[in-house]
C-alpha cells in the first residue's frame, strides 16, 4: 500500500480525530489528542493494524512536551504489512499521563513499561506498570529525558598537562 492510499484510508477511518497527518521517512505520523488515543487505537485495530512495533517517547524540553509515538503495523493483513503508522500524542512534560494502550494492543505492554521508566510517562490502566530494564532508583531519575546529562569521565582528569 502506498503512502497516499494509506492517507486516504486514515482520513476515511479517523475523520476529525487526527489533528495532524504527516508523511515522514519510512512511516506516516498521525498526531491525536491524548483524550482520543484509545478510540483512535481501537479504530486502527479494526482496520487491521494488529501489533505495535515500537513505543517511543521523545523529550522536547524547549516546548515543554514529551511526544509518545506508537509505531503500529499489521501481521494478518498482508497489504498493511508494508506501511508503518506512527500514532503520536503530545503530553505535558511536568505531568505526562496518558491512557495505556496495552488493552488494545498487548504487544505494547512491555514497551510502555520502558517508556514509563525512561521518561516517567504514566500509563493509566496498564496491567503491570513497573520498571522493566532499570532498577527502581535509576528509573526515578527519568534517564532518557534531555535534562539527565551523562557525566563523562576521562582518564586524564586531574592529570597535569605536562606535555603541552
Amino acid at each position: 500500500m502506498k503512502p497516499e492510499e494509506l492517507l486516504e484510508l486514515l482520513k476515511h477511518a479517523l475523520g476529525g480525530l487526527a489533528k495532524e497527518v504527516t508523511v515522514r521517512k519510512g512511516y506516516v505520523e498521525v498526531l491525536v489528542d491524548a483524550d482520543s488515543i484509545v478510540p483512535v487505537a481501537n479504530k486502527l485495530k479494526e482496520l487491521g493494524f494488529d501489533h505495535v512495533k515500537s513505543v517511543t517517547a521523545t523529550d522536547y524540553p524547549k516546548e515543554s512536551k514529551i511526544r509518545v509515538t506508537y509505531h503500529v503495523s499489521s501481521y494478518l493483513r498482508e497489504d498493511l504489512a508494508k506501511p508503518i503508522l506512527g500514532l503520536s500524542v503530545d503530553l505535558p512534560r511536568d505531568n505526562p499521563v496518558m491512557e495505556s494502550l496495552a488493552g488494545v494492543w498487548r504487544s505494547s505492554e512491555f514497551q510502555e513499561r520502558e517508556v514509563y521508566e525512561f521518561f516517567g510517562v504514566t500509563f493509566r490502566g496498564h496491567p503491570d506498570l513497573r520498571p522493566l530494564l532499570l532498577i527502581p532508583e535509576l528509573a526515578e531519575r527519568r534517564v532518557l529525558r534531555k535534562d539527565f546529562v551523562v557525566k563523562e569521565e576521562s582518564i586524564y582528569e586531574g592529570v597535569p598537562h605536562r606535555y603541552q
Binding site: D50, H51, Y75, A81, S107
Partner: peptide, 18 residues
C-alpha cells in the same frame, strides 16, 4: 502471535507470513 507482536522465525513458525 499477532496479538503479542512476536517477530522473526517465531512468528513465521505460527503461520504469519512476515
Amino acid at each position: 502471535a499477532a496479538e503479542l507482536g512476536i517477530v522473526g522465525p517465531n512468528a513465521r513458525a505460527s503461520g504469519i507470513r512476515y
